[in-house]
Design a protein around this nucleic acid. Structure first.
Lengths: 142, 142
DNA sequence: GCATTTCCCGACCATTCTGATGGGAAATGC
DNA sequence: GCATTTCCCATCAGAATGGTCGGGAAATGC
């Protein structure tokens, strides 16, 4: 029913990378500080994101991480899915038969899953950052 | 990210009650067998549903449970909410500031929550049973 | 008054999940 | 060859999940 801390951290890190100057690499340390994330925990997360095809990394002096694709083409849903395995699996494990309404309830939950999936896969990191800026502007005007 | 087993059982029990002849009371034993639910566990669940204003109960010989309202006016979302406390809290615990995109990501997840909430609160037990019957009919024609 | 059935506790338990932490191997740059 | 930084596996404590068990009180029907 919730998003895992791990996925939350992954989103933070991805957003920080997305907000950084394009082409710039950030090290785990910097990301951990900017996002207030435990370093070693973040390490695992970045690794997962890398293996998920989202990040590119470079070892050694001057190494670090950067997004492997433009922020416009990376969705919130994709990140959560990489980390948590799935996103909003309300229908997971629910039987499709065995008692009255079984198929119906499963279909219903599946539809809910589809909706959040669609929404979160349609929101890119760029969208999120823009929403953030729009919100700041609004706050300023008030 | 998932619906708890408890909520799943609650849905089963509610649907079984909804499918029964109106006005008929079912005992824990019957519900447990029809829904394949551990009896003592179900007891807790029915109690919660009763305190949530969904069920009416009667003690003693010939006692049991029945819905306190027509199936048309009880939603899937209501049941899950009573048992799990909330439904689809993707945005729960996500900060609204502290790093670039924080507000944006929170807003995004909140929107997803609103959508599943709307959907599941719009689906009544009656709807679910009907969907079930429609599906059976379809299977028959194939 | 006796059987039945819900009500309502509270304790316990096994397993899994979550949120980390630690230590070393392997690249890389100089 | 040495510092740096990622890679990767192993482990761990604590919480949550999904129950189980027991027992006594209170309705209700006969």
């Amino acid at each position: 029913m919730r998003i895992s801390k791990k996925a939350e951290y992954a989103l933070r890190a991805a957003l920080i990378l997305a907000a950084a100057a394009p082409g710039r690499t950030l090290q785990i340390q910097e990301l951990a500080e900017s996002g207030t994330i435990p370093v070693k925990f973040l390490e695992q997360i970045l690794l997962a994101l890398k293996n998920g095809g989202l990040l590119r990394s470079k070892r050694g002096v001057g190494g670090g991480y950067q997004l492997d694709r433009p922020p416009r083409s990376i969705s919130v849903g994709e990140i959560i899915t990489i980390i948590d395995g799935s996103l909003s699996g309300l229908a997971q494990g629910i039987p499709t038969s065995g008692f009255p309404g079984a198929a119906g309830i499963h279909a219903c939950l599946e539809q809910a899953d589809r909706r959040t999936n669609d929404l979160l896969h349609s929101q890119s990191l760029a969208d999120v950052l823009e929403a953030d800026r729009a919100r700041e502007l609004l706050a300023f005007e008030i």
